[in-house]
């Protein structure tokens, strides 16, 4: 199961990375004579109301969603690791302060917080800025979960007989941290990364559906899904007739499903 999930992710990532060769215009070129067309050999997933190639936009969206959601997860895990290690290594006022900040962040309904922080930046910013802002916010808001897990992991490891023996023999704290603590924490951090990446993919999709994610003309799976709104009101028959518009949904399902399968079972949300 995990092997199949890894293959699916690899194929999706390959498609995303080879996108610039398959569709060099990145889905931004408008074909004014081919507005809202169904799939054809020239446009495998048809064109959108502005005459842009949907397949090229899907590949371009894959590059953004599949590269930046994991990047945001990496940022969150790194921040969480830094804070968690600091809180775990230094019991006292620092640990209390960091724990309180962690509690506060975990207690807040994070989509409200995300929306509030997103609203601090003007909506009409340049597309590249909206892209960076969206994923940076996701990364900066996701630190609390990993920090809590890392703090507990550091405290557990520091209490283990092996580390106690090392410290009793006078091993330098930095050596304990780099040679013994970090290798012990690596699987924990990898697990947190695998758990956060699909959550961020879904959060970006939700933001895109609300028009607050990556802004046009850039494509992400989130803002491509927004196109479904136009057929949703027309009923199930219209959705079936426009099956090609479900391609971003299929990609999102495959990638988040694969990431959930790859995440250790006990931390999958």
């Amino acid at each position: 199961m995990k092997f199949a999930a890894a293959i699916v992710l690899l194929l999706l990532s390959l498609a995303a990375l080879t996108g610039p060769w398959i569709a060099p215009d990145g889905g931004q070129m408008q074909f004014r004579d081919h507005i809202n067309e169904p799939p054809s050999p020239q446009f495998p997933l048809g064109t959108d109301p502005l005459g842009r190639d949907r397949f090229a936009r899907l590949l371009s969206g894959a590059r953004i969603s599949l590269l930046l959601a994991p990047a945001a997860a990496l940022l969150a895990v790194l921040l969480g690791a830094l804070i968690g290690i600091a809180a775990g290594l230094r019991p006292g006022w620092l640990a209390h302060l960091l724990s309180a900040a962690c509690d506060l962040t975990l207690a807040l309904p994070w989509f409200f917080l995300l929306l509030t922080l997103r609203a601090l930046i003007p909506i009409d910013v340049a597309p590249a800025v909206s892209l960076l802002v969206t994923f940076a916010l996701l990364g900066l808001l996701g630190w609390a979960g990993p920090a809590r897990v890392v703090q507990a992991g550091v405290q557990d490891t520091l209490r283990s007989p092996r580390i106690l023996a090392l410290r009793a023999r006078g091993a330098a704290p930095l050596r304990v941290l780099t040679r013994h603590l970090l290798p012990e924490l690596a699987p924990l951090l990898a697990g947190q990364f695998l758990a956060l990446a699909p959550v961020f993919l879904l959060a970006e999709a939700n933001l895109g559906l609300l028009g607050l994610g990556v802004s046009e003309p850039m494509a992400s799976w989130g803002n491509l899904l927004k196109e479904l709104e136009s057929v949703a009101v027309a009923g199930p028959a219209a959705l079936v007739q426009s099956w090609w518009m479900l391609a971003p949904l299929a990609c999102l399902l495959l990638s988040t499903g694969s990431l959930f399968i790859l995440a250790p079972r006990e931390i999958t949300p």
């Binding site: 699909p198 879904l202 959060a203 999709a205 939700n206 559906l209 609300l210 989130g222 899904l225 479904l228 949904l249 999102l252 399902l253 988040t256 499903g257 959930f260 399968i261 949300p269």
Partner: peptide, 10 residues
């Protein structure tokens, strides 16, 4: 798992 892979908006 399938339901969890769908964004709530969708």
């Amino acid at each position: 798992m399938l339901l969890q892979c769908l964004p709530a908006g969708l």
